[in-house]
Structure formats: C-alpha cells, structure tokens
Design a protein around this nucleic acid. Structure first.
Length: 789
DNA sequence: AAGTACACTTAGGAATTTAACT
DNA sequence: AGTTAAATTCCTAAGTGTACTT
C-alpha cells in the first residue's frame, strides 16, 4: 500500500464518520498534503528570524493541512444562526502602542512621570479620562460617528517601519469628550508627557511615579521572564517591564454589581397548591423556573444539584419536601410575559433604558494603564444563577451564589484612589498593588471554591495585544525548529523506552492533529480529554494504519476523525493499548508536564499549545499564498474564508446547528425553484419575441411585460446569476453549519498574515476583521505587505 | 513527584444589534 | 414598518501552563 508512511508526504485520510457527515462527503477526501520530513537536523536550531521576515519556507505545512476533513458531528444541541462573514465596519479608532522593542527599557520608564493629572477626584467621571490617551475601540456612543471610509491598507506609507511600530492607520477622532488626544500615537504621547508637560500632575500620580521608579531598582529576576526574552525579542513587557512587571500605573473604578433581587410574588405550586416563599427562596426558584424550557430539565444531575441547594434555603421543615411535586410554571409564564413586554417596548423606551444603564456603567468601563485609557473586559460581577456546565458536568444546576464586595480583591496602582465600593455600607475584601499581574479584581468562584474569577482588561488593550504578539512570535519561531522536531519524534517512534515512545507519539498527534495538551481533570468536572489524557477507547487502530479518534474535548465538543498514520505510530498505539482496559490512559507514562518539559528541550518556551497556533497560522499563510493572485475583492474574500474554514476544521471549532437551519434551507430551495420558473418563462418569451410574438400569461394570469429580445436576454442573464449565487450561498451555508470560523480568527490566526495579505490583494481589511477584531489586532496593522508567517 | 494555587487564554452559546428582505 | 437572518457582542465556562507547596 502506498501509504505514506514512509516518507514525506503523507496523505491523511480524514473522514469523519458521524452522522453529520453526510454533508461533507463531498470535500472530503481530499488528500492530504505533504509534509516533508526533511533532513534530520538538530532540533535546537534557532529560529530563523524574528520579526519581520518575509521568507517562507515550504515545508512548514502543518500536517493537518493536508488532511481533508469532514465535518464533525457535534453532540450539542441546536442553536442558532450560521454566519458567513464579511462585514464592513467603520474603522475603529485605534491607537496602537507598539512594542518598541528597540528602546532601552530605561527610556520607557521615565516617560510616565507626572504625566497626567487628575484634577481632583471629586468628579469621577471625567477627570482622568479627559487627559488620557485611549486605546481600543470606541465607546459605544461614539460609534455612529465613526463612519470613515476604510483606508486602503495598501496605501500605507511605505516607510513605516514595522518594528518601530508607529501606527500607520490613524483614525480621525470621534467626537466626543473623552478623547481629545486620540489622534496622537501613544508612543508620541508618552514622550510628550514628560515632566515639563504643561499638563498638570496630581499628587496621586506623582506618588505613583515614585513608587515605580523605586520598584525598578529592586526588581528581582524571575526566570520566567528571562526565558521568554531569550527567544522572543518582542516579548518585553511593554511599558515598564522590570522583571515580570506588567504596568507601572494603574487606575480604575472597580467593578459593578448586579442589582439586588426584586421579588415578583408569583407563587409556585406544591402538590397543586400555591406556596409562599421568602424573597431568597423565590429568587432561587425563579432561576430554575426560567430554565424550564431548556434541556437541563432532562438531566437528573441538574435537578438533583438544584434541589440540594434550594432545599438548604427552604429550610428543614418547609412545606416543600421534594422537587417532583413542585410546579414552577406560574413563574415561568410570568417570566415569559415579562420578556414579551420588554420586546414590545418602543424603540425610544429601549433606548432610554439603555442610556440609563450606560450612564451607570460608564465609569467602570475604563482603566488607565500607564497613562493610557483602556477598556476593561468584564467589569460586571457575575450575577447569581444556576451553574450551567457544558457537557455532563457533575455540578450543573448548583446555585452560584451572589458575590458581594467583601468577596472581591481589587488590584490597583499605589497612590491612586481606591475605587469606591458601589454598595453603601459594604467594602472590598482586600486591596492589592501588584504590578506583576494584569488583573484588576478577582473573587473566588462560588462553584469551584479554589478557582478565581478575574476582571481583566479588554482584548483591545495594549497589554493584551502585546502578549498576543508574543504568542504569535513564539509560534512563528517554531517554524525554524519544526523540521528537527519532526525528525526527532519520528526517530523515537521505535524507541525502546516506553516513555520516550509515548512522548514521540503524543508530540506527533499534537503536531499532526492539533490536539490540545490534555491536563488532568478532577472528578467534579465534565469528563473530557486532550492528548495526554486520551483513553484507550478513544483511539481505535484500524489496520493497516488508520487511527480512529472519538472523544470529547474541551467544552465537551466531540472530536471524530479517522487518520492515516505512519506505520510505526500505528504499531506504537496498538502496543500502548495492549493489556489495558478501555478506560485506561492510552499514554500512561505521560502527562502535560513531562510532555512540555520535553518540548522545552527542543525549543525554548515550546509547549503543546504552541503547535495549535503554529498549525493554524501556517495553514492560513500557505493557503492564502498558494498560487492564485488577482481576483476581485469578493473572490478573494471567498478564498480567505475557505482558508479560515480549513483552519477551523483542523482545530475542531464547532458550533451547533441553528434551530432554523433546515427551515432556512428549505426556503432557499423554494426560492431557487421559483427563480428557475421565472427563468423558464423568460426563455419562452424570448423565443416568442424573436418571432415577434407577444409574451404569454404569467402564472398569475396576467400578461407578462412585453420586452424586446435584448432586454429579455439581459434579464435572463441576471436571473441566472442570481440563481448561481443562491446555489453558492446555499452550499456554503450547509457547509458551515457546524463550523465556527470565529474562534480561530480570534485566537489562532496571526493577524499579520491577514493584514499583509489584504494589503497585497487589495482587500480592505474591514472585509475580514470587524470592529472588535480591528481593535484587538491594532498592533498588527502596520505589518509589511510581504510579511509571511 | 505530586498536588495546589494562580494567572491567563481559549471556547461555544445566548443575547443583542444590525442588515436584508418583503 | 415589520420580520427574519446574519453579524456582533456579551457572558462565563473550560482549557493551558508555571510556580509554589508538601
């Protein structure tokens, strides 16, 4: 058989077997691509280059890219909508702070100084913000103004240096109050801020500055940071990085709490009779009632957990003694009515309410980090509710209790005002001033006592952007090592040391299939696996050399795939399975720590997840640069989406099928049929018109319009085009009904690949990235058009 | 060496907003 | 103008991975 096992190219047959598959068959068996396992080389070869280079190598194709795949089925239930893409949005105003890596650290530090001041703390809502630069997307009320035509990427001034990072796209500022300086690039702004600045400085800030500078001197080294620096020049922590330091000044307003519970007084029935409940009891009952129409109701675990928590609140000898005899319908129906009422409100009312809310929340939306105004990601404390775990989660249905200020620890710069506790009479649990972390606040997860819930900055912040860039640079540097790594693990498929053999095979699977690492999980979590935690039953060898995977991964999303592998891998897997029960670990000598420790020997900073990023990004880069040039914008966008889809399939990013999917398909089909009918009529009329006869009656009994042959022909062409377009739309829709494109776009695809490609192919970046993505990827916008991953 | 604590990234679905139809 | 589908945003769960403890 010509399986590829021997050398370079190995086709991987990838078929997914599940039900869902029927659809995919079409594309399925495309064969795989090739990977060349090149010449051996030492694994430690340094990465080729770092930031900007353009070269590309050929063999970086991820293994998986050559795999053809079929869709996977998804075990989850139905959900809504499918989407395809495109969107053009106004450009966000984005300011980017770029990593100016070349700057000596020290210079960065000094910049901050007494830069901005807050004139007095009394009016919280505007002081700080008014003199601070803003990063990230615009505030909600601004956007309507922001309708600028998109700026063609290609027109970017030629000499902007990628590295130095001046944002080249600058946006006109949006109206309002808050950011008057928006148009100034951050880096510049920082310079301006130096001491002399005409801007006043508040005492608070001065203090902060002092603190920082002193802390600089005392930094202790953390090896972690050191390591990172080794392989990634760009990894310095931005504005002030000492060792592990993430910021020098941090100002924010804390978090906002959900409103207290408002009793509605609707009674549930117990054994048919209304029961009085206290507000606290009613609140929890309502959480349950509201979920009556979800399929959590079919899960005994959910009900059991709910009942256990609720009964505690009911008290020992409450009238209600079991859940089965409770009828929550009255509350459910009340809730439905409320929802309906809300829907019926006029647009004005809705708007008013929204504005009200905005006003209340405005101050919590922003933080000022090193003088830059940044969006906060999640400033709303999670409201109480019933825990909705994914998959068969043992804790589903448990009461997630209300969080109070006394549960919350705030992290904020020294010397700046502590956020006022929004609930009168209560206070924060603790205030910290830890600049080695990026969180603004945290509380203990009420469901999982030892876990934390953090409040972080939004994705548009430069802190996040910076680390995003580091992530991609690391993945990119894997390119320089991958050949050696593959060589090495291939050699070890036959190693007599079982551990080494397992490491080799696991690494292979992670590389080839982009599997997740697979950390151990507790018994009180859903039973899902990743590479290191695969069970014997999850991988079935099908001779001669096919592996059939079937397991639940993150979020209990099912991974089903059949892959052709090298014979040694196949043999190794068979051997790992022998003598074990189906529920035993396939890789019994392995866990993520040992695996990652091994990977680190092959490349500094390498861990399992890097392969996913690498795999995704290299696949996109290759697909976008595969032959074809030219093509109009729409065609190019299709090419992009195709590549995006490929990546999503490799990473197994699924979504559930929209509830209305089949109805929508039916409707599309009807429309197509209808158009075909029209087409037929037109053709008849054309034939007649050519002979000088008048048109026939339409199906409605009226005569159709009398047109000359040219007009009719034109109409026919139009109709044909319309039909074709609909057919295509239908196809993509069906094709993407279980594929989620967004996840890879947001987390796995180096935006520089996209931006550079857009510049080269004259596709406006707005066709690919929406407003949020543009803000999140601001750091990548000035990449050179020749950039290759 | 194993377990735990902590911090941060990645993920799908619900809710909301916007665009496209009719 | 009302309806529906598509797109986006919000929400928070569920992963990864390192450092610290025992």
């Amino acid at each position: 058989m010509n399986y590829s096992s021997d050398e370079d190219d190995k086709p991987l047959v990838f078929k997914r077997t599940s039900t869902a598959d029927k659809l995919k068959h079409s594309g399925q068996l495309k064969s795989a691509s090739i990977r060349k396992q090149e010449k051996p080389s030492t694994s430690t070869k340094p990465p080729s280059k770092q930031e900007s280079d353009t070269e590309d190598s050929e063999d970086d194709k991820p293994l998986s890219s050559r795999i053809s795949t079929a869709p996977k089925t998804n075990t989850n239930h139905v959900k809504k909508g499918s989407s395809i893409t495109t969107s053009q949005r106004p450009q966000p105003k984005v300011k980017i702070e770029d990593s100016d890596d070349e700057k000596p650290l020290s210079s960065k530090f000094t910049v901050l100084g007494p830069s901005y001041k807050k004139k007095d703390d009394s009016d919280d809502d505007k002081p700080l913000s008014s003199r601070v630069k803003q990063n990230g997307s615009t505030s909600r009320d601004n956007n309507q103004i922001n309708k600028k035509p998109s700026i063609g990427l290609n027109k970017r001034p030629p000499n902007v240096e990628r590295l130095s990072g001046q944002p080249s796209l600058k946006k006109p500022k949006l109206s309002d109050s808050e950011d008057e300086n928006d148009h100034i690039p951050i880096s510049q702004r920082m310079k301006n801020q130096s001491p002399s600045g005409t801007k006043s400085s508040s005492s608070a800030m001065q203090k902060v500055t002092k603190v920082n500078s002193s802390s600089l001197k005392t930094f202790k080294k953390s090896k972690k940071v050191e390591k990172k620096l080794k392989y990634s020049k760009s990894s310095k922590v931005p504005p002030g990085s000492g060792e592990g330091q993430k910021w020098t000044t941090l100002v924010h307003n804390g978090v906002i709490f959900p409103p207290p519970y408002k009793p509605h007084g609707i009674k549930i029935l117990y054994k048919g009779k209304p029961v009085d409940l206290t507000p606290a009891q009613e609140e929890v009952a309502t959480m349950f009632a509201v979920m009556l129409d979800t399929d959590y109701m079919t899960k005994p675990v959910f009900k059991e957990n709910f009942w256990n928590d609720w009964r505690k609140i009911l008290g020992r000898n409450h009238t209600i003694q079991n859940l089965e005899d409770c009828d929550f319908k009255p509350i459910y129906e009340w809730h439905q009515r409320e929802k309906e009422k809300k829907k019926q409100m006029s647009t004005e009312e809705k708007k008013a309410i929204k504005e009200e809310k905005m006003k209340l929340e405005e101050k919590y939306m922003w933080a000022i980090v090193d003088g830059v105004k940044e969006k906060v990601g999640n400033f709303r404390v999670e409201p109480p509710g019933l825990f909705r775990g994914r998959g068969e989660h043992p804790k589903m249905g448990k009461l997630k209790k209300r969080i109070h200020p006394s549960d919350i620890t705030i992290n904020i710069g020294k010397g700046v005002p502590i956020p006022e506790c929004p609930i009168p009479g209560e206070s924060w649990k603790e205030i910290r001033h830890d600049n080695t972390v990026t969180w603004l606040a945290y509380w203990y997860d009420p469901i999982n006592g030892k876990d934390f819930k953090y409040v972080f900055l939004a994705a548009s912040s430069s802190l996040k952007g910076q680390s995003d860039k580091v992530k991609y640079e690391k993945a990119r540097s894997l390119k320089g090592y991958i050949e050696g790594i593959r060589k090495a693990y291939t050699r070890d498929f036959g190693n007599k040391d079982v551990t080494k053999r397992q490491v080799a095979v696991a690494t292979y699977l992670i590389d080839k299939l982009a599997l997740r690492a697979g950390n151990e999980k507790d018994d009180d979590e859903a039973d899902t696996v990743g590479c290191c935690t695969l069970k014997v039953e999850n991988v079935e060898p099908k001779p001669p050399n096919i592996l059939k995977f079937d397991f639940l991964g993150k979020d209990s999303i099912r991974y089903q795939n059949e892959v052709e592998v090298e014979l040694p891998v196949f043999k190794a897997i068979q051997q790992f399975r022998t003598g074990k029960k189906s529920n035993d670990d396939l890789f019994d000598k392995l866990d993520t720590s040992t695996l990652n420790a091994h990977l680190k020997e092959l490349m500094p900073g390498l861990t399992a997840k890097v392969f996913r990023t690498y795999n995704a990004s290299i696949t996109l880069d290759n697909m976008l640069n595969k032959g074809m040039k030219g093509g109009n914008v729409a065609e190019n966008v299709v090419v992009y989406n195709q590549a995006n889809k490929e990546v999503a399939i490799i990473c197994n990013h699924q979504r559930s099928v929209s509830k209305s999917h089949s109805a929508q398909m039916t409707r599309l089909n009807e429309k197509i049929e209808e158009l075909k009918g029209v087409l037929k009529e037109l053709e008849t009329d054309l034939a007649r018109a050519k002979k000088g006869k008048p048109p026939l009656k339409g199906s409605d009994g009226k005569f159709r319009r009398n047109m000359n042959p040219e007009a009719l022909e034109k109409k026919i062409d139009q109709t044909n085009a319309k039909i074709e377009k609909m057919e295509r739309d239908k196809e993509t829709k069906e094709d993407l009904k279980t594929v989620a494109l967004g996840t890879s776009k947001i987390n796995y695809l180096d935006p520089r690949i996209t931006v550079a490609w857009c510049k080269r192919s004259e596709v406006p970046i707005e066709k690919i990235f929406n407003k949020s993505l543009l803000a999140k990827f601001a750091w990548s916008m000035d990449v050179d058009p020749s950039f290759r991953f």
